[in-house]
Every structure is written in structure tokens, then in C-alpha cells.
Amino acid sequence: MTTLHLNGAVRSVSSAQDTPLLYVLRDELGLNGAKFGCGLGQCGACTVLLDDRPIFSCVTPLGSVGDRVVTTVEGLGTEAAPGRVQKAFEAEQAAQCGYCIAGMIVRAEALLRKTPKPSERGIRAALAPNLCRCGTHMRILRAVRRAAGTPA
């Protein structure tokens, strides 16, 4: 058994140590937020926070997490009580299919924890690891600016 500090709780999981964290979150713990996109660390759909740092959970083995705190999009707020980044995405209607959006929100959260007032270039650079195929990028940028309180 492995102890996981996840979204403000302590969870005990039985997956093998080499299991990518993504499958532990989705299959053993039943979370939906982190998504399988590529399994290669190329698209960011699986992004979660390890402490305050965004990581690709699809290429992060469970055994490497240790006692660092894992935060998924579920840990940032709920439908009933959304967090600040989620609220901003809702206000900007920043989703089409939305499959990439949980990863985008988590990566934006990481940026804003480190840099509360990011520049436009800083936002674009921070989000570069995450892909969106619907072309919702301009709304995602607006949502991050809104969450930072730095309208363009």
C-alpha cells in the first residue's frame, strides 16, 4: 500500500509502484479530472500539481510521488463551489469539447501560485506544454488573465 496526499486528504492506494499516477487517480480513486491524452508527456491533458509544480501524471510513476501533495482539478473547487481559476473559465466560457481544460486549469493554477500577476508572454509560455485541438486558446488566455485580475 502507498500513502498519497491528495486534494487535502490522505489516501491509501494499492496500485503497483510503477503504475503511472494518472491510472491511480482515475482507476483506483475514481477521479475524472486528469485525462489520458498521450501517455507521453506531450499534451498536458493529465496535468496535476505535485506540491505547487505542474507535472504530467501519465509519465509519473506512483512510486516517485513520495510525501509530496498531489492536487488535481477536483482539489481546486467543485461545480457548486468553484475555485478562482474554474470561476474564470466559467465566466469566459473557455471550453469547447473541454477535454484539455482540467489540465489547463491546473497548469494555470501553478502559474498563478508562482507568479500572481503574469505577463501575457508569461501566460503563453506557461501554458505551452498543454495542447487544445478545438482552438479554445484565446478564451483560455482570457480566463487566465481574469483569474489573475490582469485583463488585457
Partner: peptide, 20 residues
């Protein structure tokens, strides 16, 4: 506002990938 967006922002069951 889109009716499907709130669940997609908060890790609700929104996709077939989430269906168990």
C-alpha cells in the same frame, strides 16, 4: 452559458472516458 461546461471544469463525469 453552456450547460455542459461546469462539470468539465471541476472533474465531473463529462466524457465517455469517465464512464465506469
Amino acid at each position: 452559458p453552456r450547460v455542459d461546461i461546469p462539470a468539465k471544469l471541476a472533474g465531473g463525469q463529462a466524457y465517455i472516458q469517465d464512464f465506469r
